[in-house]
Amino acid sequence: MKLSVLVPAYNLQNFIAECLLSVLEQETDFDFEVIVCDDASTDKTQAVIATLETLFPNKLSAIYKTENQGLAANMSTLLAAAKGEYIAYLDGDDIALPSKLQRQVEYLDTHDDCHMVYHESDMFDSVTDKTIKLYSKDFYNWSYIPARSTIEHMIKYGTYMQASSVMFRNHSNLSKTVSPKCKIIFDYAFYINNAGYLQANVDFIPEVLGRYRLHENSFGQQTSRSFDRREQSLRDIELACELSSQFGIKPDLIKAGIAHHRFAAALYFLARDANDLFLKYIELASNSGLFFNDKHQTAYENRQNPNKLKNLLSDAA
């Protein structure tokens, strides 16, 4: 089997059919399997998946859990079932564009020194179907990301790869790549772990080969409604950075990555007038005396005057 496409699902009755069909209907010159694991959905997600199973009996395999166990356990189940030479992940509410699988498999087949490959993704509003922005090229740190990156870039600069855009080579440590302590941000630790075990060169395909759906219950929307979720997301991100020490990543780089993520969280809270949380995280991000960039130093130096700082950052934009 050349490729396994892994799709976790939970309460996605409005989106799971479009997601699965977007991969099941792709034309390729290789064999691939699509494995979907439903985490005991309470809506009609399982019924939708079951219908598609009857239509694609040789390509779609479904696993139905009877107890909700969370994304980490769901992903462990999917990884255990995967038989492909290559692994692709697809969130159950995202969409693969028609040439995604062929394009990424061809890239890995013809670039032996590449271990993970990701593509550009179109972030779109689920209600209007309108593009909001490109995920990678419009990422705030994109200027720091080379066409071939490594685990060090992932730690230092963050989630510039959209979760559903990545394909990587299968390996003997696949079962060790799930970090069950992560509660909200799963993909960051997952891809850092895979990059570490593969000692990966991570290449970028600039073509838009997937669509990242934003809707009322998507991760970003839920997080925007809860500061607690944003803080938990940061803890997950910090954990992912810390776990990279097992791959020989130097402590100074891990500290720099964590400091940068705290700085990003500080700006998030500043923009939402959560000044106490801004102050908390800008001080945590700056306690080493090292700054990610000039913007970071400006934020720290003006941390006691948030309104002035907003004007300074606005003028510098």
Rank of each mutant, 00 (worst) to 15 (best):
M1V: 15
M1Q: 13
K2S: 12
V5L: 06
L20Q: 02
V23H: 02
E25H: 06
Q26M: 02
E27M: 04
E27Q: 09
E33K: 11
D39N: 04
T42H: 11
L52S: 02
L55V: 06
P57I: 07
P57M: 07
N58G: 14
L60K: 04
A62I: 09
N68G: 05
Q69F: 05
L71P: 01
N74L: 06
N74M: 05
S76M: 13
K83M: 09
L90D: 02
G92P: 01
G92L: 00
G92F: 00
I95P: 00
P98S: 09
P98D: 08
S99D: 11
K100Q: 12
Q104G: 03
Q104N: 04
E106G: 14
H111G: 05
D112G: 14
D113Q: 14
C114Q: 14
M116F: 04
M116K: 02
Y118D: 04
D122Y: 13
M123Q: 11
D125K: 10
S126Y: 04
S126M: 08
V127F: 05
V127Q: 14
T128V: 08
T128G: 08
K130G: 09
I132L: 15
I132P: 06
Y135S: 05
K137R: 15
S143Q: 15
Y144C: 14
I145Y: 05
P146Q: 09
Y157W: 14
G158M: 09
T159Q: 15
A163P: 06
V166P: 03
F168V: 02
F168E: 01
F168G: 01
F168D: 01
R169P: 08
N170K: 07
N170C: 04
H171Y: 06
N173L: 11
N173M: 13
K176L: 15
T177G: 12
V178D: 05
V178N: 04
P180R: 07
D187W: 01
A189H: 05
F190R: 14
A195L: 09
A195F: 10
G196Y: 12
G196H: 08
L198C: 12
Q199I: 07
V202E: 00
F204T: 06
I205K: 03
R211I: 02
E216G: 00
G220R: 00
G220V: 00
Q221P: 00
Q222L: 00
T223S: 15
T223E: 11
S226K: 00
R230M: 13
E231D: 10
L234G: 01
R235E: 14
R235F: 11
D236H: 03
I237W: 08
E238A: 12
A240K: 02
A240Q: 05
E242S: 14
S244W: 12
S245G: 14
S245I: 14
F247Q: 07
K250L: 12
K250S: 15
D252E: 15
D252F: 10
D252L: 11
A259H: 08
H260K: 10
A264S: 13
A265R: 02
A266F: 03
Y268H: 12
D273P: 08
A274K: 13
N275K: 12
D276P: 11
F278P: 02
L279S: 09
Y281G: 03
L284I: 11
S286C: 05
S288I: 09
S288H: 11
S288D: 13
N293Y: 05
N293H: 08
D294I: 07
K295R: 10
E301F: 04
K310H: 07
L312Q: 04
